[in-house]
Structure formats: structure tokens, C-alpha cells
Design a protein around this nucleic acid. Structure first.
Length: 767
DNA sequence: GATTTCCTTATTAAG
DNA sequence: TAAGGAAATC
């Protein structure tokens, strides 16, 4: 500990940093904005600056607050700092976490000041929807008339802008009759969540903001505490997050934000690119450092990415450069349909891996939507290429995991109806929907919880002997589990990290084994599942152990009191499960091709990247093409993110025909590909709209059988037509009626497929 | 109460 | 197509 500062002289800390990076690390600007292009060493600058502050400016670890968007980014920072800090426990004193985790940490200390139970649960989207359905039932609203998903989307949009139901009711813009119903439900939802101690994601942030605004003591406490505030991925912050940052940063503290406006891809979630573009409006003393040297990609990849992003208007305008060689050209793969596309990608991966002697894990396939992964998976497994897919069904969203966590929750909070309802009949105990409905109703009439009813024998009447027996058995099972937990509690003091780990592990074993879940899932008739389901449960136990070691119970920062309590340990673990997607990159030992959406690829890099589904309507998405605003710019940024993931080789593929949602769609290749200068491309197959080498065109007989019977006047599927500009083609599809009749015509290679409105196209039938 | 069958609907992206 | 809910059947 004594030598620790001497090991890291200022000179040593700056070693290996370029001048711009050094400036970012050492700057004493009050507010510093670092524009960090993809692959420019952003994380390095962040962590080096933290080291600098600790070592050269002598800040204590707990005086540093660093906020990220993903758990992965937070974990990455923590692990990079771990080696630098004198002992493992020291890193726990840093406030490094996601927006949500940071707010949770603050709320666990002070939520009671806002009339909340500090042990609230955190709801993900699914929990949220369940809660809303419960509420709608209580209010006697029909979920068909008031669609839960729609209501939640509105509530989320309101919360993102910091609007409470009461504020909305006053605003004239919202006073339309239709809105009043929604606002009324929103108000009830707010009350219901607080009464049941359940917070959704947006609530974590909004409640923290209100806490800091209203409670001067709390605000002052954090202002004194945090001397430096860091924000990663600043381009993705929304209005609420910006407010939070401002509230947490004292006038005399340092603010350091890192971001890249060209990588702002969360506008749909309320992110405001203006936050980074115009930060000087909030902080006139803003100082900016721009990192433009890229250490990741080849020259060609960077040039392609630069060429595409240059078409955007909303940007500060930077141009990445590299000292690296040009490297391979961008491979463009033109496929007949989605199956052909997947086959071609798999083949290329296989060939490249063999010829260049590369591992599977060095390849990634990225796509716009999760639903595009299916064909890729199929082809990969067909060619016996191991792969791992991210996203989709997340670990902590799996049925068996949610069941186990519900039992865990009941150990400590048996009055939690949502958890109880989830597992009351899992494993099957002959407690059906009707019984649960009755219980819920009775609980509501008695203004208590279901657990209260069960333990008071209130409901177990002679009228339903079978039902009474099943309920009594369930009740005694839960009591038995609680007794087991109490015993574990006596044996393990959770102030000790090691013991806390044992306690949490034991609690999960109780939740999984004593509950009967284990037997239920390991004996499932479906063999394909039984293996993974019990595997997942085991994985959950080890995740819990790890959690306890990494997250010791924090002393109460505000009052200085320590409140070590097993309940807090359990609640914190449960919350972290909700806040953690639970899927990470392939483990070091896992050698597989990686499949994921472009969004989840942000922050990652791979030697070989394939971007699949580069078609107008897919990428850019249909929705973006329809929109009047700058959603195309966001799609383009997404494209920029995709391209800049690649280190050595980038390939983009598109299919002329894609089978989706039970229909076939024809589409043109992505407009983004057309924005890449041709000299950077290497074509495989042909590309409509670009120069074509007929020799390389794939078999031109498009296999899709014309669908007979579809007609618009004399124009029927299969008929040949002539267009004044595009020449001759064949009708492939017909849509719409009267004035809006459109036909899909396949012209020659250069032109490809076009949808034409009959009224304007002036098509002539050809015999 | 559980299981099977039929019918509708859906596709942006995630903490 | 496939997933999820409602209706029908066991």
C-alpha cells in the first residue's frame, strides 16, 4: 500500500498514449468532452484518467463516479482498474456502474425519503406488463381496449421526459379526452408500483432525480462526495439521464464525458444526440478533445465507414484515420434469397478459417433484427460451424431462472404476490387459474397479501377440500423453506464477503431444490430442454456466489451506519439479475462464431465481420424509411457502428428475395452499400444499381414461382411488361386497389426489382 | 384442470 | 413461419 503510488509515476501512466489521449487524461478542464471515434482507445483514456486522478491528484476511490450504459462496460472498467489498485476491495469503493445500477445504489440508501420501501424489486419489461395487467384487472379495465404494451410505451416515454401523471393532467397539450384515460391509468400505475414496492427501469432514474432535487441534504452529500464524474457513451443519454448527471455533478467537481455522435444509436429509446453535440450550451466552459486515430481497422474499412457516415448532417464532423495498411476490400455478397445468403456466409467463414488458419471466435455475423438470425443459425449448424448467439432470450428471462428467483424473493418477502403467483403452481400442485383468481380477489378485499390469507387459514374453507389441501401443502412448503433460510442465516454473517457468498448460494439451493423446481425441470419430458434448464439453474447458483464476492454490502454512505442484513443481500442480488442481461462475449475458452444484433455489438471488435441483410427495408429498416425525420441518419450511424467493428475484413450481404412473416418480399440492396465508393468494394454476384459483371452473376433463373391469380386489371403476376425508362421486365407481385394498385416488376440486373404504381408508371404489356 | 387445436398477429434495436 | 392466446376437447 505504501509503495503503491511510486509504482505509477505520471510518466508511467502516460506511456503508450498519443498526444490527444494524453491531453484527455491529464486535462484539468472543469468540463471535458472527449469525442472518441470508434477504436480510438476510449476505454483506455477513461481508465487511465481515473488512475491519474487517484495517483496524481490524490482522489480517493469513492470520490469517483463513473457511469456506463452496459454492465459489460462497467465490468471492463473495473477489471482494468483492478490490477492498478492495491487490493481487490479497493475497486468496490469506486462508484462504477450503469445508470440504473448507480440509481439503484442511491435509492437503496434513501428511497424511504420519497415514500418508497427501500427493498423494492426492480421490474423488467415482462414484470412490468404483468403488474399493469394486475392493475387493469383491479381497475376493471379491459386489456383489449387498453393494450398493456401500448400503455407501457406511453408511460415510458413520459417518464423518459420526467413527466409524472399529475404534471400531464395540468398540461394543456395532453388534456384531450383520449389521453385522460391513459393519464388516469398512469397515475394508478404510479401508486400501485409504490404500494407494491416495484420499480421499473425508468422509475429508478426518475425517482433518483426527484430525490436529489427535493432532498437538499442528500444532494449536498453527493456533491461533497463526488469530485469527478465520468460518463461513457455520452451520445446515448436521454433527457432524464442528462438531468441526473447535472444533479450529481457539483459546481466544483470535474465532469468528463466520452462519446461519439456518429455512434448514437438509441434515439428510439429517447437518446438525444443534442446532448453531446451542444454540450457547450449547458457548460460554456466546455473543453473538447477529439480522438481520431483509429487503432482497430484497416484503411479500407475506415474509408468505407467514413464515406457512409459523411452523408449525415447531424455531426460534429471528424474523420478517422489509421496508420495501418489498406487491407482487403469490402466484400459484397449478393444472394438470391435469405437461405442462399446464409449458405454463402457460412461457406466463406469456413473457407477463411481453413485457409488463414483462424479460430471461429474471430468471426462475427451482425444483423439489424434478432429475427434475421434463424437462417444463419441453420446454415452454420448445417456446415458444422460452432456458433453462439447473443440476445434473443436472455439468461435472466428464462422461465426456470425466473422461477428460482421468485422462490428466492419469497424467502424474504412472502407478501410479494407477483412472485407467489408465479410459482404457486410450479412444479404443478393442482392449483389452477381459478384458485389463483379467487385468492387474488380475496386478498384484495381484505386489503392484504395472498400470503397473509394462506397463513391465517382464512381461505381454506370446507367448501373446497381439494383446494384447501393443495394450498395448505404449498404454505407449509414455503414455511419450511423459510425455516431453512433462517438457519443458514444464523450460520453465515453476511458482513464477511466469503460467508455472504455461502449464504446466497445456500439460499438459492433452498429456492431451487427444496421448492421442487430442480426435480421438476430435470425430469421434464422434453429431453432437449431438461439438460439446459438444470444447467441454467446451476449456473445461477454460481452467478450468485460471484455476485456476493464482488458486491459486499455497502455501508450506508449517508448516515455512516452500516446496515448489513441478509435481506439486502438477497434484494440486491435480485435487482442485479433484472438489471443484467446476463449474456457476455464468448468465454475465453469458447471458440465459436458470434451472432448478434448491431446494437449489441457496440463496443466490441472482431477480425472478421459479416453484416447480413443489407437491404433497403431491413437495413435501413422499413420504419426508418417511412419516417419523415432523421431516422435514416440513425440507421446510418448504426451502419457506421457495424462497419467499425471489423479489424481485418468486412463483408456485407443482401438477398434479393426474403421470406419473412409468411410472405416473400423482394428488395433492393441497402442504400448504405451504394454510398461506399466502388473502388473499395469487391463484388461477389451482382448488385443492382452498381456496375455489373455478368460473368459473376449467380444463376439468373429466379426460382420464386409466380403466384397465379393476382391481378390488377390486365396486369397479372407472370406477365411481361415494358417501362419507358427501365425497359422490359416481369411482374412478380401485385398489391393495392384502384388508384393505388402497384406491381412489383423484375427488370434486368442493373435495375433489379421495382414497385411501380400503375397510375404513374405507364406500363405496356408485352406479348 | 390439463391438453390439444385453431386462430390471430407480428418484427426494430435493450437496461 | 412461429408464437401466443382462445376455444374446444379430453
Amino acid at each position: 500500500m505504501q509503495n503503491f503510488q511510486n509504482n505509477y509515476s505520471p510518466e508511467a501512466l502516460l506511456q503508450g498514449l498519443n498526444p490527444a489521449q494524453q491531453e484527455a487524461v491529464t486535462s484539468d478542464a472543469q468540463v471535458l468532452r472527449v469525442i472518441a471515434g470508434a477504436g480510438s482507445g476510449k476505454t483506455k483514456v477513461l481508465t487511465e484518467r481515473i488512475k491519474w486522478l487517484i495517483n496524481v491528484e490524490h482522489l480517493a476511490a469513492e470520490q469517483i463516479l463513473a457511469i456506463t450504459f452496459t454492465n459489460k462496460a462497467a465490468a471492463e472498467m473495473r477489471s482494468r482498474l483492478m490490477g492498478f489498485l492495491p487490493e481487490r476491495s479497493y475497486v468496490n469503493r469506486l462508484w462504477i456502474g450503469t445508470f440504473h445500477a448507480t440509481c439503484l445504489r442511491i435509492l437503496r440508501l434513501h428511497a424511504n425519503l420519497m415514500g418508497w420501501d427501500r427493498n423494492f424489486t426492480v421490474m423488467n419489461r415482462a414484470d412490468q406488463e404483468k403488474t399493469l395487467r394486475e392493475l387493469l384487472a383491479v381497475l376493471g379495465k379491459n386489456p383489449k381496449e387498453f393494450v398493456p404494451k401500448e400503455i407501457l410505451a406511453r408511460i415510458s416515454r413520459w417518464k423518459e421526459r420526467g413527466l409524472r401523471a399529475d404534471m400531464l393532467a395540468e398540461e394543456r397539450a395532453f388534456s384531450a379526452r383520449a389521453n385522460q384515460d391513459y393519464i388516469a391509468i398512469y397515475r394508478e400505475y404510479e401508486k400501485f408500483c409504490r404500494a407494491n414496492a416495484r420499480a421499473d427501469f425508468d422509475e429508478l432514474i426518475l425517482l433518483t432525480i426527484e430525490l436529489l432535487e427535493q432532498e437538499e441534504m442528500v444532494r449536498n452529500h453527493f456533491h461533497r462526495l463526488f469530485r469527478a464524474v465520468f460518463v461513457d457513451e455520452f451520445q446515448d443519454t436521454n433527457e432524464l439521464q442528462m438531468r441526473l448527471i447535472q444533479l450529481l455533478t457539483a459546481d466544483d467537481a470535474k465532469l468528463f464525458v466520452v462519446g461519439d455522435e456518429d455512434q448514437s444509436i438509441y434515439g428510439w429509446r429517447g437518446a438525444q444526440i443534442e446532448n453531446i453535440l451542444y454540450l457547450e450550451r449547458r457548460y460554456p466552459n466546455l473543453h473538447t478533445v477529439s480522438l481520431e486515430e483509429n487503432y482497430r481497422s484497416t484503411g479500407n474499412i475506415l474509408q468505407a465507414a467514413n464515406a457512409v457516415i459523411a452523408n449525415n448532417k447531424k455531426r460534429l464532423g471528424k474523420k478517422l484515420w489509421t496508420a495501418a495498411a489498406d487491407g482487403e476490400k469490402i466484400r459484397v455478397i449478393s444472394a438470391f434469397n435469405e437461405k442462399d445468403e446464409a449458405e454463402k456466409i457460412a461457406e466463406i467463414i469456413k473457407k477463411t478459417a481453413r485457409e488463414k488458419n483462424r479460430s471461429w471466435r474471430e468471426f462475427a455475423i451482425l444483423y439489424r433484427r434478432n429475427s434475421l438470425s434463424r437462417n444463419l443459425e441453420y446454415s452454420l449448424s448445417n456446415q458444422e460451424i460452432p456458433y453462439r448467439i447473443y440476445g434473443g432470450l436472455r439468461f435472466f428471462d428464462r422461465q426456470e431462472i425466473k422461477d428460482a428467483l421468485a422462490y428466492l424473493r419469497l424467502l424474504n418477502h412472502p407478501e410479494d404476490n407477483q412472485a407467489l403467483e408465479r410459482i404457486i403452481n410450479r412444479p404443478k400442485r393442482s392449483i389452477g387459474e381459478k384458485t389463483i383468481d379467487d385468492l387474488r380477489l380475496a386478498a384484495w378485499q381484505n386489503a392484504g397479501g395472498i400470503w397473509n390469507l394462506l397463513t391465517n387459514d382464512f381461505f381454506i374453507s370446507a367448501n373446497f377440500p381439494k383446494r384447501a389441501k393443495a394450498l395448505a401443502e404449498f404454505t407449509s412448503l414455503i414455511k419450511k423453506m423459510q425455516a431453512e433460510f433462517q438457519e443458514a442465516l444464523r450460520e453465515n454473517d453476511c458482513r464477511d464477503a466469503e460467508k455472504a457468498g455461502q449464504l446466497l448460494t445456500r439460499a438459492l439451493e433452498i429456492a431451487i431444490h427444496s421448492s421442487g423446481l430442480w426435480d421438476f425441470y430435470s425430469n421434464e419430458n422434453d429431453r432437449t430442454y431438461s439438460e439446459t434448464r438444470s444447467d441454467n439453474l446451476e449456473e445461477l447458483v454460481s452467478a450468485a456466489k460471484e455476485f456476493a464476492l464482488r458486491n459486499p454490502i455497502f455501508p450506508d454512505n449517508f448516515t455512516g451506519e452500516t446496515t448489513p442484513d441478509a435481506g439486502i443481500l438477497l434484494d440486491n442480488f435480485l435487482a442485479s439479475c433484472t438489471l443484467d442481461a446476463g449474456d457476455y462475449e464468448a468465454d475465453a475458452g469458447e471458440n465459436r462464431v458470434q451472432l448478434m444484433t448491431i446494437h449489441s455489438a457496440k463496443g466490441l471488435e472482431f477480425p472478421f465481420v459479416f453484416v447480413a441483410g443489407c437491404e433497403d427495408g431491413i437495413f435501413p429498416s422499413y420504419q426508418a424509411l417511412q419516417s419523415l425525420h432523421d431516422e435514416i441518419e440513425e440507421e446510418r450511424r448504426l451502419c457506421y457502428v457495424a462497419f467499425t467493428r471489423a479489424r481485418e475484413e468486412l463483408s456485407c450481404s443482401f438477398a434479393h428475395i426474403r421470406y419473412e412473416q409468411g410472405r416473400e418480399h423482394a428488395s433492393d440492396c441497402s442504400r448504405f452499400l451504394k454510398e461506399i465508393p466502388e473502388n473499395l468494394l469487391s463484388m461477389q454476384g451482382f448488385m443492382p444499381g452498381k456496375t455489373v459483371h455478368p460473368a459473376s452473376a449467380p444463376n439468373a433463373n429466379f426460382a420464386s414461382a409466380p403466384r397465379a391469380g393476382k391481378t390488377a386489371g390486365k396486369f397479372a403476376v407472370g406477365k411481361k411488361v415494358e417501362h419507358s425508362k427501365y425497359g422490359r421486365g416481369v411482374i412478380k407481385d401485385v398489391e393495392g386497389e384502384g388508384e393505388r394498385s402497384r406491381v412489383l416488376v423484375r427488370f434486368n440486373f442493373q435495375i433489379g426489382d421495382k414497385w411501380l404504381v400503375l397510375k404513374y408508371a405507364n406500363l405496356q404489356l408485352v406479348e
